[in-house]
Design a protein around this nucleic acid. Structure first.
Length: 642
RNA sequence: GCCGACAUAGCUCAGCGGUAGAGCAACUGAUUCGUAAUCAGUAGGUCCACGGUUCAAAUCCGUGUGUCGGCACCA
């Protein structure tokens, strides 16, 4: 006699066990048509699930956010059926919904190519049109293994074998096609709709482990309706236009070439951008109690052995040898051992702590070829690196200070929002569990004090300590770690750093490894995408173009440019014999934030007409006034606040 | 590193066995013009590299390098 409580508080009683389908139908034909699944006491289940006891039921319709996930998951099943119909002998593995879509991993000797897509999509539409109901059934573990083994689906059999003992093993059929799946699903394949599109193929390791077989993955996107799909595809096309590799080329910021794989050639305009960021960072660090240092590029392997990096990262280090000396040097992949060497010069007192040592250190890492990506993941990069030597008691304070500094800097660079991940101890690590308990505890405590919301990233910490990762997202939706704060109780021990405590005893300092931008290359790459190349005046490589209308104004335009340069602005003078329309277009395409137009009239009145990028209005100002205004606008935010 | 795709003029791309093409940019000339492309002309290529197949290769095959999309990695 289940009594069903609905979201509006009303209660409906039934004489016997009922399915969601029946309940929905009892409420009305509209809901009967719209209900795709339901939540019973908060748990998402198939609409066909039988409800035996009193329960609160919420029906899921296409409008609900969760429906989108179900459409994508079901679409993955439709994809799998289509692939097996078209390519017999292909084994299915897993196919979850993901952000914006879904994927399915297949085991097949010959990987799929995008040329297979039209046929697969056509078959998928056919399966959707069949509208076969999704039917759930429960199977015994051994039967399940036998069933899939007999079908030649060894991956599915392996999945069942590895499910926890208590887990109910369920199959879902759609017509003749059957898949191992936890569910839930919508009513039938027809509910998937037709607003889907296969996007790309890729290799992916079985269970994400590179020691396992390489599977063939097909990615797709799926939406409620065509309009949503079109909007998504349009968004992707727009995002492509913001790609830093494209903008870097168009604006002439940098280039990469084969002879220096993974290293950036910064062009004058790109380097201007870089330096504006670096100058800003240097000011911020100076004011925040950091001392800047510079440590060697090449350091003997002995130091890397002592630090533990040689053992763990040797194959990712660039190694140098000289003929006459029997020495092996490594290009530094990081700055920390160097900073410890500076710390160790002379006797340190507790009075010097916390000691914050910063370096814009150029590091080299032999990154796997497949990891390289534009200027975001390179083999040669510069970090805004610093190490804070302090007592354990000070970890929380320093973390709070760091988060405040980072937030302020990110906001200045146009990132008011960012996400934080807390990475805990990895399987392979240095240091005792006790030390790790300490480090993780201190960091968690500090986050609580600083009011930092984070998600846990289990097992992803550095080998010497837990870390916070500050994550920004690029134009294409990929997440990149930029800032980081890592607690290290291991390296000071390994490299024997110590200080004299208040009581005269020798103690180990704690090291906090921290970076705000992370690598300049990566951060600038993301910033280019964030602004789509349309930088605020303080960052723009070229801040003002002075463009003439007639050659009679050339001389005065030269004066204008000189006055702006004297005020510290980066200015280009355009006296070419082109129409003003063409000049405006050319510099707009180059994303110059301000164009100062000078014609005969301005020359006579000693004025300039300022035009903003993307705007149509122009402001005509006296020369002095214009210079003052632009000087203020070009002032970096930290100086503007001062 | 692994799977797949791609590599043609400075840029974006077409050509896919029979003497290498377009638009934009560049250069030259004319035009002095008021806020997102003035007109005309000229020049520009070991078709990524190295092998192979063929009477003939940018085009087909192999190897390498790089790039792109994922996976794995990321001190």
């Amino acid at each position: 006699m289940p009594a069903i409580t609905l979201p509006d508080g009303s209660v409906r009683s039934f004489d016997a066990t009922v399915t969601g389908t029946t309940v929905a139908a009892s409420i009305g034909p509209g809901l009967a048509r719209a209900a795709l699944a339901m939540k019973v006491d908060g748990r998402l289940v198939d609409l066909s699930t039988e409800i035996a006891a009193d329960a609160a039921v919420v029906f899921v319709t296409r409008r609900d956010e969760i429906a989108l996930e179900m459409i994508r998951h079901d679409c993955a099943h439709v994809l799998a059926e289509a692939v097996q119909e078209l390519f017999p002998g292909t084994q299915v593995t897993i196919g979850p919904s993901i952000e914006n879509g879904f994927y399915y991993d297949f085991a097949r000797n010959e990987p799929f190519t995008t040329e297979d897509f039209p046929a697969i999509e056509a078959k998928m539409r056919e399966i959707v049109a069949r509208n076969a109901p999704f039917v759930r059934s429960v199977i015994d573990r051994d039967e399940g293994i036998a069933y899939f083994t007999a079908k030649g689906e060894k991956y599915k059999a392996e999945l069942i074998r590895d499910l926890p003992d208590a887990e109910t093993i369920t199959l879902y059929s759609q017509g003749d096609w059957i898949d191992l799946c936890r569910g839930p699903h919508m009513r039938g394949t027809g509910d998937v709709g037709t607003a889907f599109k296969l996007m790309k193929v890729a290799g992916a390791y079985w269970r994400g482990d590179h020691r396992n077989a390489m599977l063939s993955r097909i990615y797709g996107t799926a939406w409620r309706d065509q309009k949503e799909l079109d909007a998504h595809l349009h968004m992707l096309a727009e995002a492509e236009k913001r790609d830093h590799r494209r903008i870097g080329k168009e604006m002439g910021l940098f280039h990469l070439q084969e002879e220096a794989t993974g290293s950036v050639f910064w062009h004058p305009k790109g380097w201007k951008l870089y330096r504006r960021a670096e100058d800003y960072m240097r000011r911020r660090l100076d004011l925040s109690g950091y001392q800047e240092v510079k440590t060697p590029q090449l350091i003997d392997r002995a130091l890397w052995e002592a630090s533990g990096h040689w053992e763990k990262f040797r194959e990712h280090m660039f190694v140098a040898k000289v003929e006459d000396e029997d020495k092996t040097l490594a290009l530094k992949p990081m700055n920390c051992p160097g900073h410890v060497q500076i710390f160790k010069q002379g006797l340190r007192s507790y009075r010097e702590l916390p000691l914050r040592m910063a370096e814009f250190g150029a590091c080299h890492r032999y990154e796997p070829s497949g990891a390289l990506h534009g200027i975001m993941r390179v083999r040669s990069f510069v970090q805004d690196d610093a190490h804070i030597f302090c007592t354990e008691a000070r970890i929380a304070d320093e973390t709070v200070r760091f988060v405040a500094l980072l937030s302020s800097i990110y906001a200045d660079f146009g990132f008011p929002e960012f996400r934080v991940k807390f990475s805990t101890r990895p399987d392979l690590r240095a240091g005792t569990d006790e030390v790790w308990d300490h480090a993780e505890g201190a960091l968690a405590e500090a986050c609580a004090t600083a009011g930092v919301d984070y998600t846990i990233n289990p097992g992803e910490g550095a080998f010497y300590g837990p870390k916070l990762e500050f994550v920004l997202r690029d134009a294409i939706g990929r997440d990149w770690q930029c800032g980081t704060l890592q607690v290290d109780l291991v390296l000071p021990e390994r490299l024997d750093a110590e200080y004299v405590a208040e009581d005269g005893s020798r103690k180990r300092p704690v090291m906090l490894h921290r970076a705000i931008l992370g690598s300049f290359e990566r951060f600038l790459g993301i910033m280019i995408e964030q602004y789509a190349g349309r930088f605020p005046v303080w960052l723009a490589p070229v801040q003002v173009v002075v463009a003439t209308i007639v050659s009679d104004a050339d001389e005065y335009a030269g004066e204008v440019a000189a006055a702006l340069r004297a005020a510290g602005l980066t200015v280009t003078l355009d006296t070419t014999n082109q129409k003003i329309n063409a000049k405006i277009r050319e510099h707009s395409v180059q994303h110059v934030p301000v164009i100062a137009v000078v014609g005969r009239k301005e020359a006579e009145e000693r004025k300039v007409a300022l035009r903003r990028l993307g705007g149509e209005a122009q402001t005509v100002l006296g020369l002095d006034e214009a210079v003052g205004l632009l000087r203020a606008e070009a002032s970096p935010p930290d100086l503007a606040r001062a």
